[in-house]
Simulated assay, not measured.
Amino acid sequence: MRVDLDRTIKMGDRRYSPHVSIMAAKLSYENEALNKTVIQHHWQMHFLGLQNFWNAYEEQYSTQATMFQDKTDDPNLIVVAFRGTGPFYANAWISDIDLSWYDLEGMGKIHAGFMKALGLQKPIGWPKDIINQEAQEQNNTTKQFAYYKIREDLKKILSKSEKAKFIVTGHSLGGALAILFASVLFLHEEEWLLDKLEGVYTFGQPRVGDEQFGNFMMKKLKKFDVKYFRYVYCNDMVPRLPYDDKTLFFKHFGSCLYYNSLYKGKVKEEEPNKNYFSLLWVLPKVLNAAFELIRSFILSWLKGSDYEQSWLEIIFRMVGFVIPGLSAHGPVDYVNLTRLGSTLHLPQSQEGLKHD
């Protein structure tokens, strides 16, 4: 229901980028008309478009991202927000459940479904440039792929302002695409763009690769001084998938900015109960789901009308009694933690040092 930014959080505040990021990630689930209205008239920012991108493996448009520019301050900020998995959007679910590996030499193994959604070229992988793309675009004979089109758009827009920066963000599947977008920039050694990348902000992001890929990313994040902020709210089940076990070998990398149901945060190496399924956690998760349901009724009384939840959202909270952690995945709690939660500082090396 919320479309307005928290005006008490201004540029320069450490909460600004994560707050704008989650609001953008939430907005990306909506249609282009609503994106344009909210960005231009509510946020007073410049709308750059909501685009559909082609998936060569599924042979359909399966990926969406919204872009806008905040020109209210100098240097201005460009935001790229990838859309996550809508509950009734089958194309996105196909990307999620494709658990096959895509092996990139020197990088490691990566979730193939996510890579295909980002623009993996069939059958040649990730060439730095698509041959004859510009000529084909002029004749409207080519499909646009997320990584390549967004990269080129960013180069054009950023070249107009020497001080401009950009951030990449997304919720759920969108978060996975956001960090993988950065990984392909690393692969292609896009130093000029990486120098302008202020950070990658993901919310409820699933695991995207194996341990080798995580090690590759940590080295590149440090080399190019790119900040990676992976937010996890309480019992959200999606960051705990796919499993980090002897069968699937998926692993997170970097620090986890973990918030409990009181929106109190800690920087951790890994979110608690990392693989979600555990008999020891069943009762605590159900009790926490009950607390979240009660909180839905009282938070607006304590914090104001911005925190009022619709009846549909309250009904979704009840799902937490049956599947604890599913109702915790919605964007509402991630918006709340950027407004109400404690401000966390990542370890300078981003190597997952544990902090309170």
Score class of each variant (00 low, 15 high):
residue 161 S to L: 06
residue 120 L to F: 05
residue 307 Y to K: 15
residue 31 N to F: 10
residue 288 N to C: 02
residue 134 E to I: 15
residue 41 H to Q: 14
residue 315 I to W: 13
residue 126 W to V: 09
residue 176 A to D: 10
residue 55 N to L: 09
residue 188 H to A: 12
residue 291 F to P: 09
residue 177 L to G: 05
residue 5 L to N: 03
residue 63 T to S: 02
residue 6 D to S: 14
residue 89 Y to D: 14
residue 304 G to N: 13
residue 350 Q to K: 03
residue 210 D to L: 09
residue 343 T to M: 13
residue 43 W to D: 00
residue 274 K to H: 07
residue 143 K to W: 15
residue 273 N to W: 04
residue 176 A to S: 07
residue 7 R to Y: 09
residue 195 D to E: 14
residue 20 V to E: 09
residue 183 S to K: 04
residue 249 F to I: 03
residue 336 N to T: 09
residue 222 K to F: 11
residue 182 A to H: 15
residue 209 G to W: 08
residue 338 T to N: 05
residue 279 L to A: 12
residue 152 E to L: 04
residue 8 T to L: 04
residue 163 K to W: 03
residue 185 L to K: 02
residue 334 Y to E: 13
residue 148 Y to N: 06
residue 41 H to C: 11
residue 226 V to M: 07
residue 36 K to D: 01
residue 73 D to R: 11
residue 68 F to Q: 06
residue 8 T to I: 12
residue 205 Q to I: 08
residue 331 P to D: 12
residue 119 G to L: 00
residue 31 N to V: 07
residue 262 L to H: 14
residue 198 E to N: 02
residue 111 H to W: 00
residue 285 K to S: 14
residue 94 I to F: 11
residue 335 V to K: 07
residue 251 K to A: 14
residue 176 A to K: 06
residue 319 V to R: 08
residue 167 I to Y: 03
residue 186 F to Y: 06
residue 42 H to L: 05
residue 351 E to G: 13
residue 18 P to L: 00
residue 147 Y to N: 02
residue 120 L to E: 01
residue 355 H to M: 14
residue 202 T to Y: 11
residue 329 H to C: 03
residue 120 L to T: 09
residue 147 Y to I: 13
residue 290 A to H: 14
residue 169 T to K: 05
residue 213 F to S: 05
residue 264 K to G: 13
residue 74 D to E: 12
residue 13 D to V: 06
residue 249 F to W: 03
residue 285 K to T: 15
residue 300 S to Q: 09
residue 356 D to P: 07
residue 283 L to S: 14
residue 107 M to H: 07
residue 145 F to R: 10
residue 43 W to M: 01
residue 317 R to P: 11
